[in-house]
Amino acid sequence: MDRSALLVSLVLAALAAGCSSSRDAAVEEVTTDFRSAVSSEDAEAACRLLAEPVRYELELSSGSTCEVELLDVRLPAAGDIQEVAVSGTAAQVRYQDDVIFLGEFGDGWRVTAAGCLSRADGPYDCQVGG
């Protein structure tokens, strides 16, 4: 990347950061709560933070409740947030070893995919959602 492109990127990133800092904070809060609920095995709280279609799909595919299935999946719960990206109604939160995706719904940000690992080509491979 040459200097001018880098400068434009930094300016745009600064503008984007200024505009979306409150949205970033809301995304971080939901993700942190979700991660804490998984860590403390509070499946009921974790399930409340899943997007409704994801919760429905989880129960349909397992034939069990969201709470039971979520504990069985054993999602990653360790590590600090490395990076948050928010654009419109979608967000991505990056941890050291995995990634969480979120969507904005009527009742706020909700997890649309969790325990996601990068693949060489194509979308992330996720333990829940996706």
Binding site: A85, S87, T89, A90, A91, Q92, F101
Partner: peptide, 19 residues
């Protein structure tokens, strides 16, 4: 860039930088 990144994250892909 913003609209494309919204779609990419909805499709569980990494967002792009502006360049």
């Amino acid at each position: 860039w913003a609209a494309f990144n919204e779609t990419r994250m909805q499709q569980l892909q990494d967002p792009l930088t502006w360049p």
